[in-house]
Design a binder for these strands. Structure first.
Lengths: 339, 339
DNA sequence: GTTTGGCACTCGCGATGTATGAGTGCTAAT
DNA sequence: ATTAGCACTCATACATCGCGAGTGCCAAAC
C-alpha cells in the first residue's frame, strides 16, 4: 500500500469517525489535501476495497472502514492527542476522593465512562499475595461464627461459617489469637497450607476451630471476588446510532451481566505492556461485533494486577480514547500503590 | 357503570394484556360470553371511552385500556391466581442458599425478575435500630485507622478514618475495649449521643480516640447504605414492544441509575399493608409513563423495614405479578427474621 | 327503549411507483 | 498515471392506492 493510499485511508477513517456517514470520493478528495480528482480517489478506493480495508454499504454510497481498516488505522496511521492537563487533574482529584479500594475502582470506572462518553470497565485487582493481617471470630446464634479477615490491602472480608458445635467466645478468642500470632503477615495461601499440615499432625480439640479457619481461608481464597469487574456508564451506549438495534443492545447488556466473556477479553490484556485495542469481531465475541474495546493493564508496585478499559462502538474517537485509558490506568495504579 | 360494562372492560383488559393489540368490538363480543352483538359492544365502548377507561389509538382501531382503566381492573375486576406451590418452594429454596443479608436481598431481587420476566427491585432494609456489637480499631500507615464495626444484623461495616496523630496499637485496643464494654448491645444513635456527652464532660487524652469514634459512628449512621436498592433483570425490559423506543428505554435506565426517583416511589409503599400498584403516570414520574410498579413492604419481626417490587410495562399480567410480589415479600421477611 | 343490522366513513398499513441525489465503475482522452 | 465524462445503481423520500379492520350513527326490530 503506497503512501497516497495511506493518506486517503487515514482521511477516510477520520471523517467517518467524525460524521458517521459513508465517505464519498469527492469529499475525500477535498479533505485529503492531495490535490487529486475524485476519479483517482475512486480508483484508490477500489484497491482498498479489494484489500478488505473499506467497504461500501451499497453500490452508490461512499466507503466506510472495515475492522481491518480500523486496525491499520490505529496501528500505523493514528496520531493520538495527549490528554489535556486539566482533564488529568480532574481525574486525579476524583481518585483522591475515594476512601477505599472499592470506591477507587468505582471512581475509575465512572471516570472512564464520563470522559469517554462510553462504557467504562475496571477489573478487580488480583493481588497475587493476599497477606493476612488479622482474624476475628464472632459467635452468632445456632453454631454459626462470623469470621472477619483483614488483609494487607485494607480490605475487610467477612463470612459466616457453620460449625459442628457451639464455641464459647473465649475459645474463639483463643483461636483467633493463635492464628494472628502464628500467621499475621503471611500469605493467605501459605496459611492455608500450614494449617492443613498441622492438622494432620495432631488431632486436638483446637483443631476443630482450625478446620473452620481452613474452611474460611479456603472460601476467601477461592471464591475471592477477584474474578469480577466494575462497569459504569453502560447507558451512554444507548446514544449511538450503531446501537439502535434494540436486540443487539440487549445482547450486549446481557453479556455485561454474564461477565464471563468480558472478563475473558480483559484477561487477554493482562500480559500487554500498554494500551490494547480490540476492534469489532477481533474480540471473538459476536455481541461485540460492532464494538471496540480499548484496554490497558494497571500496576501496583510495578506488578500488573488488573485491567481497565472502555467499551464503545467501533466508530469511536480512538485518538481521544487511547490516552484516556492509558492515563487512567496509570493514575489508578499509583493511587492503589499509595494506599 | 353497570354489570355488563364491567364484564366487557374486564374482558378487554385481559385480552389486551394477552395479545397486546387493540381489541375490536367483534372479538370482544365473542370473548365476553355475553351474547351481545358487536354493535351493542360498540355502544358500551363509547361509554367507557367517555369515562376515560379505554381509548382508541386511532379511529378505526379497537380499544385499549387507559391507566384509569387498568386501575379499575386491578382494583375491582381482577382475580389473582395463587402462585403454584412448586414456584413458592423454588423461591424459598433460593433464599435458603443465601449466606448473608446482602446475598439474600440480591437473591430476592433476581427471583422477582426471573419469575416475573421483568425487573425486580428490593430496597435495602432500614433497621430502625442498629445495635453495636463490636468495634475494632486497626492502625494503618500515615495516621489512618481502619475501623471495623459489627452490628446486630451481622453486617460488618468498615471505614478508614484519618486521625490527628499516630496511635499505638495498645491505645487503640484500649479504646476499642472501652467502647465495647460501655456500648455493646446499644443503639448506635445512642452511642453517639453518649460519647458526645462524655466528651463535653472531660477532656482527657482518651477523648481524641473517642472523637474519632464519634466521627466514625457519625459516618456509619448518616452515610448508612440504607438509602439504596438492588435491581435485577433490567435487561428483561428490552423484550417488550412497548419499550421499543430506545430513547425512552434509555431514560428509564438512567432513572434506575439515579435511584432517587425509584427510591422515592418505593418509599411511598412503606406504609402500605400489602401489595400496592402504581399504574403508568400514577407514579408521578415521566419515565415511568408506560410502566407499572407492583410493590409490597416486607417485615422483620413484624416491623416493616423495606419494600420490594417489580417494574414492567403497564401491560403486564397483574394476576400473576401480584402474588409473586406478595409471596416474595413474605418469604424475604421471614428469611431476614430467621437470620 | 334497548338491541341490532346495515352502511358510510376513517385510518393504518403494506405495496407500488416515481423523482432525486449521491456516488460509483468504466472508458476514452490527456 | 490521471482525469473528465457518462451511464448506471441504489437508498431515500414522497405520493398514490387498495385493503381490511373497526368505528359511529341511524333506522328497524324486538
Amino acid at each position: 500500500m503506497n503512501d497516497r493510499a495511506q493518506v486517503l485511508l487515514r482521511t477516510l477513517v477520520e471523517r467517518y469517525i467524525r460524521d458517521g456517514q459513508p465517505v464519498g470520493s469527492r469529499s475525500l478528495a477535498r479533505d485529503s489535501h492531495l490535490d487529486l480528482s475524485p476519479a483517482t480517489v475512486r480508483n484508490v478506493m477500489s484497491d482498498l476495497e479489494e484489500m478488505g480495508l473499506v467497504t461500501a454499504p451499497h453500490t452508490s454510497a461512499g466507503r466506510i472502514p472495515t475492522a481491518k481498516g480500523y486496525r491499520i488505522f490505529v496501528d500505523t496511521l493514528l496520531t493520538v492527542r495527549p490528554l489535556q492537563k486539566k482533564i488529568i487533574q480532574k481525574l486525579q482529584h476524583e481518585l483522591d476522593l475515594a476512601a477505599n479500594t472499592t470506591d477507587l475502582l468505582g471512581s475509575a470506572s465512572s471516570m472512564l465512562s464520563a470522559v469517554s462518553q462510553m462504557a467504562g470497565v475496571v477489573m478487580l485487582p488480583r493481588h497475587g499475595t493476599v497477606m493476612l493481617r488479622q482474624v476475628e471470630f464472632l459467635p452468632l446464634s445456632g453454631n454459626r461464627v462470623l469470621v472477619i479477615i483483614v488483609t494487607n490491602r485494607q480490605e475487610v472480608q467477612n463470612r459466616i461459617i457453620h460449625t459442628a458445635r457451639t464455641y464459647s467466645p473465649s475459645e474463639l478468642d483463643q483461636a483467633a489469637n493463635f492464628l494472628n500470632q502464628e500467621f499475621a503477615g503471611r500469605d493467605l495461601m501459605e496459611v492455608r497450607a500450614s494449617v492443613l499440615a498441622s492438622m494432620r499432625e495432631a488431632r486436638e480439640d483446637m483443631n476443630r476451630i482450625m478446620s473452620t479457619a481452613i474452611q474460611m481461608a479456603d472460601q476467601v481464597f477461592s471464591a475471592s471476588e477477584t474474578d469480577d469487574y466494575i462497569l459504569a456508564g453502560q447507558n451512554n451506549l444507548f446514544a449511538y446510532q450503531e446501537m439502535a438495534d434494540i436486540d443487539k443492545l440487549r445482547q450486549l447488556f446481557e453479556a455485561f451481566n454474564r461477565k464471563r466473556d468480558i472478563l475473558h477479553l480483559l484477561d487477554q490484556s493482562i500480559g500487554a505492556s500498554g494500551v490494547q485495542i480490540f476492534i469489532g469481531d477481533e474480540s471473538g465475541y459476536g455481541v461485540l461485533e460492532d464494538c471496540s474495546v480499548v484496554t490497558a493493564p494497571y500496576k501496583v508496585e510495578d506488578r500488573i494486577v488488573g485491567v481497565l478499559g472502555v467499551i464503545g462502538p467501533t466508530r469511536m474517537a480512538y485518538d481521544r480514547v487511547i490516552p484516556i485509558v492509558d492515563v487512567t490506568a496509570k493514575l489508578l495504579g499509583s493511587a492503589l500503590t499509595a494506599e
